[in-house]
Design a protein around this nucleic acid. Sequence first.
DNA 1: GAGTTGATGGCAAGCGCTTTCCGCCTGGTG
DNA 2: CACCAGGCGGAAAGCGCTTGCCATCAACTC
Lengths: 345, 345
Amino acid sequence: MTAAPTLKDVAERAGVSQATASRVLNGSARHVGDAYQERVHQAAADLGYSVNLSAQATARGTSSLIALLVADIADPYFGEIAHGVARGAEEAGLAVAVAETDRDPDKEAKLVRMFRGLRPFGLILAASRGADPAPELDQELAQFAAGGGQVVALGPGAGGYRAIHIDHLGGAIKLGRTLAGRGYRRAVLLAAPVGALSSDHRVAGFTQGFTEGGGVIAGLYRGGYTREDGYRLMAQLLVDGVAPGTLVVGVSDQVAVGALAALREAGREAGADIALAGFGDTSTGRDVTPALTTVHVPLGDLGYQAVRRAVDPGWAPDAPLDLAVVVRDSTPAVPAAPPAEGGPT
Amino acid sequence: MTAAPTLKDVAERAGVSQATASRVLNGSARHVGDAYQERVHQAAADLGYSVNLSAQATARGTSSLIALLVADIADPYFGEIAHGVARGAEEAGLAVAVAETDRDPDKEAKLVRMFRGLRPFGLILAASRGADPAPELDQELAQFAAGGGQVVALGPGAGGYRAIHIDHLGGAIKLGRTLAGRGYRRAVLLAAPVGALSSDHRVAGFTQGFTEGGGVIAGLYRGGYTREDGYRLMAQLLVDGVAPGTLVVGVSDQVAVGALAALREAGREAGADIALAGFGDTSTGRDVTPALTTVHVPLGDLGYQAVRRAVDPGWAPDAPLDLAVVVRDSTPAVPAAPPAEGGPT
DNA sequence: GAGTTGATGGCAAGCGCTTTCCGCCTGGTG
DNA sequence: CACCAGGCGGAAAGCGCTTGCCATCAACTC
C-alpha cells in the first residue's frame, strides 16, 4: 500500500458508513454504539490509519495549527518563548508552525501572508515589532483576523490585537532604581535602533529609574539585540573612552554578553571596573563570569499564555507576570564614596 | 466580510472560471492569457485573497509543510538546528511545524502520529534517538514513509531512513587525541544514559582518542544532556573526589557549563585545577570563563541540509560536514611534567 | 396498541482547491 | 479552401473529511 489509507478504507473494512467512522475516530458530539466503535477502531489500527488534517481542516473550516513568528529561533530569548508555546500547543492538541522574520518587517508581512494560507487557529507574534506603522503587515493581520483568526502579540505596544503585555518599561525602571541604589551614577546604554519597541521601552524605563535614583545616562549607543551588536557597540564605546565605575546596560542579555566579550578582549575587567547589566534573564547570562545582572522575563510562561489566549480569548492568567531584577556579580555594590568621576547632570 | 474570500469569489469578481483563477494564482503548468491574468490578480488583491493551503493540500494530495521533531527547542543545540531548518524551508517555500519530544520515545511516537496527520512533505528527526528499538516509533515512521513522506534523521545511528550523518564518533576521537596531546592523562566523562546514541558515540570516540593518546578514563558518570545534569554530576564527582589536573568532559556544552557552575560553587577553579570540555560548540560555551573547549558541530548547516534532503532525495552537500575541535581556555596546556597522579595503565 | 420520544446509523451535500477533458478559435500548410 | 495542430477558457469530477437531515428502531406512555 503506497497511498495512506483513508477514512473510506477504514469504513469499508469495518463495514460501516464513512459518517460513523468519522464520528468514532475524530471526536464528534454524537455517540456511536459500542460494537461499532470497537470495529472502527480495530479497522483503523489494522490499516494504520491517520486522519488527514488538511482534509479535516477543509471540511471543518478551521485547522489545528497555531503559528508562531519569531525573529530568530536560535536566539535563546525566542527559544524559550517557543518552548512555552510548544507546551501550550501540546496541551491544547495543536501543532505549531514557526517562522523567522529576521526582524525584517517586509519579511514579517510576507510570512503572515503565508501563514494566513495555513488558516491557523491563531497567530502569535513574538518578533519585536517596531513603533513605525507597518501598513502591509497590519493589512495582513487585519485580513487574518477578519477571517476569524486569533492574533496575539507578545510585547509592549501591541495595538489592536489581543496582547500578552510584557512590562519592559516597569522592569527597566526597577533595574534602573536597583542599580542606582547600588551606588552607580553613570550609565551607558547599548540599545537597538529607535523604533524597536521593546528596546525603546527598556531604554525609557531604565533612564527613568536610574535618574530618579540619582544616576545620569552618560551615553546611548544604538545597534541591535544580538551578541554581535553588543560586541561592536562596546568596542566603539571603549574607543570613545569609558571611565571606570561606569555601568553599561545592554538592551538584551545577548548584547550585554557581547559587551562583556569586548571588554575582556580589551583587557578591562567587567564588574569592578565596568559594570554590566542585561535584560531578559536568558540562559546566556547565568554562567558567564561575572554572572550577569539582568531583569527576569518569564519567557516560557509568556509563550504558554499566548497560546491559552489564542485558544480561549476569555482566558486570563491567574496572576500577572512579574518582571523581577536579578542582581548578580556583574554589578557589584559601589563603595560608599563615588569616584567623583562624572558629576550629576 | 467575516469569512475569508475563496477562489470562487475571486473568479466571480474577475469574471473568469475558477479553473482560470486557480491557474493564475497558484502556479500551474498551463499558460493563461495576459488580460485574464491581470484581471485575476486585480480581483485577488481587491479581495485580499489568500490561498487556503489545507484545501490545496487536500486537492493536490500533498502539503507544503515540513515537520521537525526536537527534544527541546529552548536548548541552543536544537535551536540552531531549527534555525537551519527554517532557513532551508523558507528557501523551498515550505512552512515548518515543530514539536518537542522531551526525549521521551513514547511522546515521540505520539508526535509522529500527529504529524502524520498533517501529511507533511517531510519529517526531520533531530531528537536524540536511543539505541534501543522503539517499535511504536518505527511503525509510525514506516507508515509515514509508506504514505510517501520523506523522513530524514539527523544524527548517528539513523537506521533505515535517509540520514544526515553527524560524526559524533570522529569528532570525539579528535577531541580525545587533541586533549591527550595537550598533556592530559586522566579524564572523567559526564554522559547521558547508556543507549542515548549521540552520547554513546561521543563517549566511545573520546575514550578511543584519549587512550590512544596515552590518557586514562578515570570515571564515567551518567545523567543526561542538560545543564542541570552537568551540575548534578559534577557535584557528585566533587563529593567523590577529583584530583587537580583531571579533565572533565561533558557530553554536551550544556553539561560542561553545568559542571563549570558546580566547580565554581565548590570553590575549585576550572582550567588549571580541573579542566573542562564539552561537545557541540553552542553559544553557551563561548562566553563562559574560562571559555569552553569543545567540538564544533555545524548545527545550522545540518538542519539546512536535512531540509534539502527531504525536498530532493537526490541532493547531496558539496562537501561533507566536518566536526572540528575548538580549543579554548578551559583546557590549558598541561606543563611538561605530569603531576604523577594516575599512572598510565 | 397507537403515538411519542430519543438514540443512532447512513446518505449525500458540501468545504476550497486542482486537474482532466472538452470545445472553440486562430493560424499555418499544401 | 479543407485540414490539422496548438493554445487557451471552462465545466465538472474529484481530494478526504464533516455534518445536516432523514430513516429506523427500541423503549415508553396513556
